[in-house]
């Protein structure tokens, strides 16, 4: 998780099945980016890194942003990633974890009342996500595709 206030760009390189979540308060200009690897934190998990998981990661990020002057009801979200990098016949959970990450991110944001204003998710390629905190604009680079501004 990284965040910034007033100025600066946040960047996450080559998101595959992971999902990059940008949260932004356009008034206070507080922005944050979480790199979600897995949909949920397991109940008995001793993993100390809460930012790995969609549910705990997004909530911890919101708390941190509030400390730095963001107001939760003003927050908006932009999400990218959750690709299926390999098409594995009979691969089981290996194949669809990206999709499960996307769903868990959507659910958590909905439960927190944060609207998703833009998304570029799914398909089968990696994305480098850049988020500019001065204007709330996102930018996605990928292999063999045009740059996406969102």
């Amino acid at each position: 998780m990284k965040f910034t206030r007033m100025e600066g760009r946040l960047i996450t390189y080559a998101l595959g099945s992971c999902v990059g979540v940008c949260l932004y308060d356009p008034i206070a200009k507080v922005g944050a980016m979480v790199h979600v690897m897995l949909p949920q934190k397991l109940e008995n998990s001793v993993d100390s890194n809460v930012f790995k998981f969609a549910d705990t990661g997004i909530r911890a990020t919101i708390r941190k942003m509030e400390v730095f002057g963001a107001v939760k009801r003003r927050l908006i979200a932009k999400i990218a990633g959750g690709a299926k990098m390999f098409d594995i016949p009979g691969g089981g959970s290996l194949g669809n974890i990206g999709q499960r990450n996307i769903e868990s991110v959507r659910q958590t944001l909905k439960a927190e009342g944060i609207p998703i204003v833009a998304e570029d998710v799914g398909s089968n390629y990696a994305r480098t996500l850049v988020f500019d905190c001065t204007n709330g604009q996102g930018n996605i680079r990928s292999f063999g595709r045009k740059e996406v501004i969102f």
């Binding site: 595959g16 992971c18 897995l38 993993d47 890194n49 990098m85 390999f86 390629y125």
Partner: peptide, 27 residues
């Protein structure tokens, strides 16, 4: 062994596959 699946893409995205597969077990 299963049938092989191929991808040509960014290394980071490709490595996210084993990373996630074992994400609950190890970092």
């Amino acid at each position: 062994l299963s049938v092989p699946a191929m991808a040509i893409n960014m290394l980071g995205g490709i490595m996210s596959v084993p990373m996630i597969e074992y994400g609950y077990t190890t970092d």
